[in-house]
Write a protein that binds this DNA or RNA. Structure first.
Length: 305
DNA sequence: CCCCAGGGCCATA
DNA sequence: TATGGCCATGGG
């Protein structure tokens, strides 16, 4: 009985593959924000003010969510399940997107190869913005290394079975750091400045996700994001995709996007905005998913068996 | 040694 | 509005 109260099952929606999601989360960068072993994933996350250690696994009829670090109420368990559903974008009906993919000349195979892959999000706006700033204009591998240093320097962690599961740092903690503290973590001066500024905005509640969510459309949300120093078109659209869940975002100028489109027959190596728009025009309302699947297509490897 | 990487700001015209 | 310099570091 006690055991059942710390576990909840999320039924699989149609077109959902935990294997594909795991593949994305474990694609070789050793992301410090979760730990994967076999088909189980551990992730520390503050949910409704409580630091929880989630264990996500695969059952016969759905994902199983367990709380590993404490006993929680049914209410909290439901909140954790809701958080996971949002993180993995499980509530979205992918039928329309797959119909569009099947009708496309180049990408119809994607509905087979990556079937059930969801647009894994970054629900926390502060985390998403920090990650964008860190990752700007550097190799993804180096970006992950810098993120790990950042998280391990400023973040708390939950210990479980000999593993430290880090929570993303609180803005108020980072806001107290000096630029030199960040230089020591291999931040450039620009990036240190951006991060400290954004941390202060969050720490003083001058910036938060709620007000952005309530703006009527993608254009308004992009405009509000672009007003933040350190946020340009690429970051605004990336955050739109991963955090605000706008479905019509295209991070123009993205190196991976250019690489993926450039590899398709009939494209120039570095497609310009017009070329990108022309290709995306057949995917109205699903641009964000198309971007995500194009990124996926860059990593040739099939899902590891 | 050179160019590029999941960019963006700022000065200049 | 459009372009160019600059940032900092690792990989090819």
């Amino acid at each position: 009985m006690a055991r059942e109260s710390t576990k909840i099952v999320l039924p699989f929606p149609p077109h959902f593959s935990w294997q594909e999601c795991l593949w994305f989360l474990d694609r070789g960068y050793n992301d410090c924000m979760h730990r994967i072993q076999g088909t189980n994933l551990w992730k520390a996350q503050v949910i409704e003010g409580q630091p929880l250690l989630l264990k996500i696994g695969e059952g016969a009829e759905g994902l199983t969510i367990a709380i590993e670090n404490k006993k929680v109420s049914q209410h909290d368990l439901k909140a954790a399940a809701d958080w996971v559903r949002a993180w993995l974008d499980m509530d979205r009906d992918l039928d329309p997107f797959y119909r569009l993919l099947n009708g496309s000349a180049h990408l119809s195979q994607a509905t087979q190869h990556y079937h059930g892959l969801r647009l894994i999000g970054i629900p926390d706006l502060y985390e998403a913005l920090c990650w964008c700033i860190i990752g700007q204009q550097i190799h993804l591998r180096f970006a992950h290394s810098v993120k790990r240093q950042f998280v391990q320097t400023f973040g708390r962690y939950l210990e479980h079975e000999g593993h430290a599961h880090y929570l993303f740092p609180e803005p108020a903690v980072v806001a107290q750091a000096s630029p030199e503290d960040l230089y020591a973590l291999q931040f450039s001066r620009q990036k240190a400045d951006y991060i400290l500024h954004i941390s202060r905005l969050f720490a003083t509640a001058a910036l938060s996700k709620g007000p952005l969510d309530s703006l009527p459309g993608t254009a308004e949300k992009m405009k509000a994001l672009l007003a933040v120093r350190g946020v340009g078109p690429w970051t605004a659209n990336y955050v739109g995709m991963k955090t605000l869940r706008c479905m019509d975002c295209i991070p123009y100028g993205d190196a991976g996007l250019h690489q993926a489109l450039g590899a398709l027959p009939g494209f120039t190596a570095k497609p310009g905005k017009e070329e990108v728009d022309a290709y995306f025009s057949a995917f109205k309302g699903w641009e964000s998913y198309l971007v995500f699947y194009l990124w996926r297509s860059l990593c040739a490897g099939p899902p590891t068996p």
